[in-house]
Amino acid sequence: MKQILLILTFFVALTGCNQSDDGANGGKPLIGVSMLSMQNEFIVNISDEMEKKAEAVGAELIVVDAERSALKQIEQVESFIAQGVDAIIMNPCEVEASSPAVTKALAAGIPIINVNSATATKPTAFVGSDDVESGRIAMEYIAKRLSGKGNVIMIHGYMGQAAQIQREQGAREILKKYPGLKMLAHQTGEWDRAKSMSLMENWIQSYGNKIDAVFAQNDEMGMGAVKALEAAGMKNKVVVVSIDAIPDALQAVEKGTLDATVFQNAGQQGSQAIETALKIIDKQPYEKEVLIPFQLVTKENVAEFKQ
């Protein structure tokens, strides 16, 4: 009888171990996701694609909004670690300030994938696009439209974020190639349409007809600049280029109010971030860096990008 009880106890213990191995999640991979800001349309598009992909492959996501706070993002990653997630996907708020989140995840033995934006500390993997390339594409388009001569204004994204740093770098590389192009002014619009509209209104007051082109580091800011220029009756004289190819921007390119945008593939970034996370969880071979190319969108090819 004792022997039977011992065997039963051993069997229950073994079953208990197996259950905890699968986690309380019924064997589904559990992935914690911290996004830069759910007030940003492009970031929401990435998040939506991740949710769609996770549902298709049978993974469970815990998605949280860092609301542009690196401190909040670190706390969210600490919470994911405490919850024992299988992997973390982070859309970093800042290059330096979000880096401790990567360090903490790696120290806890949890793979962390940066999506769309980088940190100074190397994560397990990165899925996104080369933002330097997007800055080059946008500024090269401006240079061609202005025949290499004119005054340019640049509206930065959220300062210290990888996309802001790298898009500025790419734009400045091109400016160096064209001595006839001058940077008239540059300031942050924090990826925000209303803030950029207000900035542009101030610049119109200060510089008026001296402005030949505007490079906005994302479409939200580009659309804000267009609105201010239209209100001042100056849009026909000023070239405006931005990045992301969100639906509003594609419509504006089609109408001719926005001269060009640079397509960044939110869908591929989102789905490939999930695919990479699952490969790592399943101990399959994976790429440490997945780079999805940017593409220039003008009136000539905008139809290809409209869904």
Rank of each mutant, 00 (worst) to 15 (best):
V63R: 06
K72D: 04
A105I: 00
Y141T: 10
E96P: 01
G128P: 06
E67G: 06
L146A: 04
Q166K: 13
A66C: 05
I142K: 07
K144M: 07
V95M: 08
V85M: 14
I88H: 06
A82W: 00
G84I: 03
E133L: 03
I165T: 04
A107V: 09
A105V: 00
F126G: 01
G150V: 11
S134W: 06
I137T: 08
P111M: 00
E78Q: 13
P123L: 02
S99P: 13
A54M: 03
K53V: 09
F126R: 00
S98T: 14
K149T: 13
S98M: 07
V127L: 09
A59I: 04
A162S: 15
P92I: 10
L71K: 10
Q166R: 14
D65L: 05
P111N: 05
E96A: 06
S79Q: 11
M159F: 10
M159D: 15
R136Y: 01
D86G: 00
G128C: 05
R68G: 02
G128S: 06
G150Q: 11
T121V: 12
D65T: 09
I153N: 02
T103I: 13
K144Q: 15
A105Y: 00
A120V: 01
D131F: 13
A54N: 03
K53C: 12
R167F: 09
A143F: 11
I89L: 12
R136H: 03
V115N: 02
M159S: 14
K52N: 12
K104M: 10
G84M: 04
T103V: 14
S129E: 15
L146I: 01
S147K: 14
E78I: 00
G148P: 12
E55G: 14
E168G: 10
T119R: 07
T119W: 10
A108V: 03
A87F: 07
V152H: 03
V132K: 13
D65V: 04
L146Q: 08
S99T: 11
N91K: 03
I81L: 06
V77N: 06
A97F: 07
A101Y: 06
K144G: 15
N116H: 12
A143G: 05
V63A: 02
G170Q: 05
V77A: 01
Q166I: 05
A108Q: 07
A105P: 02
E67S: 10
F80R: 14
I112W: 02
S134D: 14
A82T: 05
P111Q: 07
C93Y: 02
G160N: 12
I81M: 09
E60N: 09
K52G: 07
M159I: 15
A163V: 15
Q166D: 15
E133T: 14
I142A: 03
V95I: 10
E55Q: 14
L61M: 02
L61T: 01
S79H: 14
P92H: 09
A138F: 13
S117F: 08
I81F: 10
R145G: 11
